[in-house]
Design a protein around this nucleic acid. Structure first.
Lengths: 234, 234
DNA sequence: CAGTGGTCTAGACCACGGT
DNA sequence: CCGTGGTCTAGACCACTGT
């Protein structure tokens, strides 16, 4: 549970700083010594101190500004890293057999809602996929996805019956940035049917919108089976 | 939307690597040159390349192993950073006035469920708080919290009517690690009453368990008002 | 064993931003 | 202005791990 304290290197500096904060020798909002001072006190190079303090700032423990120095964060913003693995791997990680089934594949003009999500003109032709991801043969995630074929033209030639859109995109579309929204929603009829749960059962919904530069590639709603939890540490 | 490409420094190296992946010059699973080779080719020190590749590995774009070298991640694990600010700040960030109301404060023996969550003996005396966080006077989050007073004895002297437990703990308890679970649940009766929504309405639940070393400090369930979304980028 | 990443060091210059 | 963090460099040694 607890990480062992490092005895050497930048991690030792990091842990020493953490110890001083934990023991309230350094209080929230308080300025801590400069990198050079700490380096002298801890008998290491300033570069090493810099590395340690940089990591602490990244995790929200310290706030740093040039000239102003470093302070213990007054209101430490906790940050949790949420991993978003392939569903194939997520299922494998819980020791279940992964399965995938395409439910529907159509080409449709964008309705107003999805046009707004993807920031494109209403009526633009989009590829829409509905699919089900299975764990040990039981429904795990219901997926409702839109793809803009103008950004990834090759997608129009794929039937997505044998490979999930996500895996195909990872292998065939370049790296991209995206946004993630997490919400609790009543199961929409199609999701309830696919997942075999009651309509309006509370489902965890992850909506991912992925961009390639300034063009939206895809928007996907992933409805998890009831009672699913996302877990993370901070 | 798109970050400008840096022209110098480790960020330039990072961006050059990203460019080669985006243009599919380097394909998923492919080994990329060693740090030393890249340093030579890009005319910079190996340290600089190391910094760039380290950041890329942290964000899941590369996989690195000693001796084996660096490869483009075959199945890039997307990672989303979820910020967990103080509710006071979260509410302020949406431009609303923050409010806080303590609903209940009791001392109870741990029931089986919470004892398991906090990894302590059933029946241990715990502080239990119920509270409501408000945005512009409307319910925003219903909080149901357990605190182990043996870890933070001073908490028994606080009435938590004027300050939320979270803010008090940040100011009065040392830094700590924790776990976060996110789920969609039907509103429990008490939450529905406090939030003014239907019983069994789908609510987003964030359960945070916080540890100080190997001792659990507190476990809190935060029920967000219906239709709330967590947002993040990746 | 040997190649590769991980890190430390000492010194240097620069960019930002309080004062 | 000038103190502070941000970064680069060249060189070195170490730790891990594939062969």
């Amino acid at each position: 549970m607890v990480n062992a304290r490092a005895r050497t290197g930048w991690q030792a500096v990091r842990d020493e700083v953490l110890r001083r904060i934990e023991t309230r020798r350094w209080l929230p909002g308080m300025a801590i010594p400069t990198e050079a001072e700490l380096a002298g006190e801890l008998h290491c190079a300033r570069t090493t101190v810099n590395r340690a303090l940089r990591e602490l700032a990244r995790s929200g423990v310290l706030e740093r500004r040039r000239k102003a120095g470093s302070r213990v964060a007054l209101h430490p913003v906790r940050r949790a890293m949420l991993d978003i693995p392939l569903l194939r791997h997520e299922v494998a990680a819980i020791g279940a057999a992964y399965g995938y089934r395409l439910l529907a594949r159509q080409t449709l003009p964008a309705n107003r809602i999805i046009a707004r999500q993807l920031d494109l003109a209403q009526g633009a032709p989009l590829l829409r996929l509905r699919a089900l991801h299975l764990a040990n043969g039981r429904p795990y995630v219901y997926e409702d996805r839109w793809i803009d074929p103008r950004v990834t033209p090759a997608a129009t030639e794929v039937d997505f019956a044998g490979i999930s859109a996500n895996e195909w995109l990872i292998a065939n579309a370049p790296l991209s940035t995206g946004k993630l929204a997490i919400a609790a929603v009543p199961a929409p009829p199609a999701a309830a049917r696919a997942l075999g749960c009651k309509r309006s059962a509370p489902l965890l919904l992850l909506r991912r919108t992925t961009w390639l530069g300034d063009r939206a590639v895809t928007c996907v709603d992933m409805y998890y089976t009831p009672n699913h939890q996302l877990q993370s540490e901070f």
